[in-house]
């Protein structure tokens, strides 16, 4: 707990607090309010393509023109709910896959000497820093009918005809798991690194089997990191646009892609805003609950 150093520094505090606050207010808070406002407008064929919320008509007071059209559309048309369910299902499967791949990798890394740990960690960070778009694109080269994997399989005679892999839900799943794997590995590694390894050794000395050690000792101690990893993968995966667009077929209508289509192709800005807002609420609620929860159990980096 720091105290202000002296009264003279008030202008200094003013700058420190004022600059970021102003930025966040104008370029984040205000836009979030605008999306709320837009979601209550109606799409029209005009420039701009939506109705005004306030109408300065004949009278002295402006007429309020709130439309629930977009929300009604979202509830009534199964198309949107279907897309949301499809996105949540896919994100759940993808998050489980990343966890299942990342956990044994991290458990293997943690047993290495420090020098090797650093090298392996850098090898995880490198693709994480490489352009997302390029990493997704590279799967196009691998999965195409005349792509790398099919050519290898054909060459060794394992298949007679190329397997159609690209433009399917399977390709989208691989793309998501691939792109978000580092987001799972990094928090898990950080969590395991903090774990007191003597506890594991003690369990070993007492004759516990590896699986028992994992479930009874390691897992309870690192579950905050697991939850962090799950959040870091699940939320962006649900709203993902690039991966389903590049690797998915015409049947893969995920919610992120839907916002894009509503906005750019159908020019229905109110509906796009309403979907975005619902997603926002859907993600914010579990995070808020979780935040309260983690703040109680452990002081979270003094951040909040």
């Amino acid at each position: 707990m720091k105290k202000p150093l002296s009264n003279k520094i008030n202008w200094f505090k003013g700058v420190l607090l004022g600059v970021p606050s102003l930025w966040l207010a104008v370029f984040l808070f205000l836009p979030l309010m605008l999306i709320l406002k837009m979601s209550f407008a109606e799409a029209i064929l005009a420039q701009p393509p939506f109705t005004a919320l306030l109408n300065w008509g004949e009278g002295l007071l402006p007429e309020l023109n709130i439309s629930f059209f977009s929300y009604a559309l979202l509830i009534e048309d199964n198309y949107y709910i279907g897309a949301l369910l499809q996105s949540l299902t896919l994100a759940t499967i993808a998050t489980s896959c990343t966890l299942l791949i990342a956990l044994p990798m991290v458990l293997a890394m943690i047993k290495m000497p420090n020098k090797w740990q650093n090298i392996f960690l850098i090898l995880v960070i490198l693709p994480f820093w490489t352009s997302f778009l390029i990493r997704v694109y590279s799967w196009k080269i691998l999965l195409r009918n005349d792509g790398f994997i099919n050519q290898i399989l054909l060459y060794f005679g394992l298949i007679n005809d190329p397997l159609p892999m690209l433009y399917s839900q399977f390709a989208v799943l691989i793309g998501i798991v691939y792109s978000y794997l580092p987001f799972m590995i990094l928090p898990l590694f950080a969590g395991l690194k903090k774990l007191d390894y003597a506890l594991v050794e003690a369990a070993e000395d007492l004759g516990a089997k590896p699986l028992t050690i994992f479930f009874r000792v390691i897992l309870p101690l690192i579950y905050p990191s697991i939850i962090a990893g799950i959040i870091l993968v699940f939320i962006p995966a649900t709203g993902e646009f690039v991966i389903p667009d590049l690797l998915g077929g015409s049947d893969s209508l995920l919610i992120g892609k839907l916002i894009w289509i509503e906005f750019f192709n159908n020019r229905d800005w109110p509906t796009a805003s309403a979907i975005a807002l619902i997603l926002l609420i859907l993600f914010a609620l579990p995070l808020l609950i979780l935040n309260k929860f983690t703040r109680k159990s452990q002081k979270w980096q003094d951040l909040v």
Binding site: I35, G239, F241, G256, A272
Partner: peptide, 8 residues
């Protein structure tokens, strides 16, 4: 998700 930030 970036798509929401972009739209906002």
């Amino acid at each position: 998700p970036e798509i929401i930030l972009g739209l906002c």
